[in-house]
Every structure is written in C-alpha cells, then in structure tokens.
C-alpha cells in the first residue's frame, strides 16, 4: 500500500520534471544582453497585436520574457492600478475612476496609440433595403430610450420594410461596447439592453449571418474574415469636413479618419516605474517601430509613419522626464 501510494505521488512529479526539462531551451542566440520580465495584460482586442510584437521581439531579445494576459481592458486596468503589471492593452482610454486608483497607489502612466480599428456596422447579405445608415439613425436604434420602442425597420426610415429589427452587439464588459456607445449614443456605457450581446465576436458573426433582419457591429477584422456571409453598411456622420456621404470602413478610410466616428485608436498604457527599465524601453521602441506592419497582419489598421514617430517622441520625452 505504502509503495503504491508513494508511486502515485511520484509519477506526476517525475513526468512533469521530465517534460519541463526536455522542453526548456536556454537559447543564447540573439544579439542583446537585455533581460528581465515584462508583464502585459488587458484588452482581448489589442491582444493579437501585442502577441505579434512579443513574438518578433523574442527573436531579437530571447532573454526578455514578455507575457500577455487576456483580462479585458477593465480587468487589466484594475491590475495596472495595483502595480501588478507593466503595460496594459486598452481598446479605450483610461476612465477617471481607474485613473484615481492609479493615483492612490502612486502609479503614473503614459498612453500610447499603437494602431486603429474600425467598427463595422453589418447586416445580413439577404437584407436588400439597407445600403447606408447615418449616425443619427444608429443613435435612434441604440440609445437607451429605444428599448422596447424601436422594433421595426420602418421606424428608422419609412421606406424600409415593416419587419422586426434584430440587434447584435458587443457585451457590456468590453471596451468595444464602451467605444461604440460613446461614439454613437454620445455617452459611454449607455445603450438599450434588449439586444443579443456577446463578448465573442464570432458569435455575433454567426448570429447576423443567419438572420435576415439582423443589424450589428464589431471589429472590422471579423468582417474581413467573413465577407461572404455579411454585408457591411457604409456610415454617414453627416459632417462634410471628414468626408461627404456614407463611408465604407476600409484601411484607407480608417487611416485617413474619414470613417468617423467608428474608427477608433487602440492603446497601450505604460507604468512609469516600468518605463525606467531598459528592457521595457526597448520593447516599447520595438512596438512602435514594428507595430504598424504587425497590426495590419493580424487584421487591424496601421497608423501613419508620422503618427508612430510622434508616439515614439512622446515616449522618449516621458522616459527623459522620469530620469530627472
């Protein structure tokens, strides 16, 4: 009995040690003596970009361990405010409540823009009537007062059919929801509640692609990957200074900011005490140098070269001020 019990306990231990020793590779290749840990958490929207940057960074600086979590923008800011992470991925700006937590814990930080995302408004391909939509109409559909009242397409435009409208959108915990409501309703985190919500955009894609009466929104990458199943609706913000008429989301229109107000910047927030460390400085520099190309590769939209240079300058100044 004793022996078997002992064996039972030892088996998993040896198995693990064997596997972990076998898998561990201490690579000495690479051209730098930088080392250390960089802890990143936050938005699942920004995650693919940070993951791509970390992947390429590792090839150059193998001794710097960059880890990335998926707690969401809000969850990440909670950890950021406690000083538990160095960098937070954010799909919206920091809220004043979150900022006051940082202040209370003596954490100062810097916001850096790393890429753009466009929120695409989409309908089912069988929807023949909607060819464009205005921001005012979107507001009418999504504002809290619309709950239970705006139920039919013809309430939005009389020439649209008197058929039910089925709404799909991001879950209320996501930065995407905060951004959309801010841009469309005018107040962050405020919308009608009677719509199909999911934190997983693929669920929304599934829903809209099988429902003729659906209307929804999500990141442009999800539209690009499902073009054959969805129809994108050009959005008109009725302000001529940033492009006349309805505008279709695309790399160009988001980059030149004519796809307003649904083109949005994505951020990373850097903790100032982390920004003093050389490996973090080199990582941020790497991020702002390669982030553009990498964000395109994972489905987002790069900023212009001038914008990246400006963000770099902003960071260098921040670091300089810290050194004083």
């Amino acid at each position: 009995m004793t022996k078997t019990l002992l064996k039972l306990l030892i088996l998993p231990i040896t198995a693990i040690t064997m596997v972990s020793c076998g898998g561990k590779k201490t690579s000495d290749s690479g051209n730098s003596n930088l080392s250390g840990d960089i802890k990143i958490d936050g938005s699942s929207t920004v995650f693919p970009i940070t993951e791509a940057v970390a992947e390429d960074y590792k090839a150059q600086y193998p001794d710097v361990k960059v880890t990335v979590g998926l707690s969401g923008t809000g969850g990440g800011f909670k950890k950021f405010g406690r000083g538990e992470i160095d960098i937070n991925d954010a799909s919206r700006s920091i809220k004043s409540v979150e900022d006051s937590v940082c202040k209370a814990n003596n954490i100062t930080h810097l916001e850096l823009k790393v890429a753009f995302d466009g929120l695409a408004v989409v309908v089912n391909p069988k929807n023949t009537w909607v060819n464009d939509i205005t921001v005012a109409e979107l507001k009418m559909i999504w504002e809290p007062a619309a709950q239970g009242k705006i139920k039919y397409w013809n309430q939005i435009r009389p020439e649209w059919p008197k058929e039910e409208i089925h709404l799909f959108g991001a879950g209320v915990e996501s930065g995407t929801y905060d951004y959309f409501t801010e841009a469309i309703v005018g107040k962050s985190h405020s919308s009608r509640g009677d719509y199909t919500a999911s934190e997983d955009d693929n669920v929304l894609v599934q829903g809209i692609s099988t429902d003729k009466l659906a209307l929804g929104f999500f990141g442009i990458a999800y539209f690009e990957a499902n073009k054959d199943k969805l129809k994108v609706v050009p959005v008109d913000d009725q302000k001529d200074e940033n492009g006349k008429g309805p505008i279709t989301p695309s790399i160009e229109t988001v980059k030149n900011k004519t796809y307003a107000p649904l083109g949005r910047p994505l951020f990373i927030y850097v903790n100032s005490s982390a920004a003093k460390r050389p490996e973090v400085q080199s990582f941020i520099d790497f991020y702002l140098t390669n982030g553009g190309a990498l964000s395109q590769e994972v489905g987002y939209i790069a900023m212009t070269d001038e914008e990246y240079t400006a963000e770099k300058a902003k960071f260098n100044e921040f670091v300089k001020a810290l050194a004083k």
């Binding site: 972990s20 699942s44 995650f47 960059v66 880890t67 979590g69």
Partner: peptide, 26 residues
C-alpha cells in the same frame, strides 16, 4: 491571472503560465 501568451515553458511552480483551455478560448 493565468496568461494567454507565454513564450517560455514554465520550469518552477513560481513561474507564470497558460493552460490549454485558455489557449483554446483565446
């Protein structure tokens, strides 16, 4: 606080980690 992107194999119980369900979820 388990992570989604871990570029190394954990070698001690004090290391940060990811697990298969999180990788799948991601």
């Amino acid at each position: 606080g388990a992570l989604a992107y871990v570029p190394f194999v954990p070698s001690s119980p004090a290391d940060e980690f990811s697990v298969l369900p999180i990788q799948i979820f991601n």
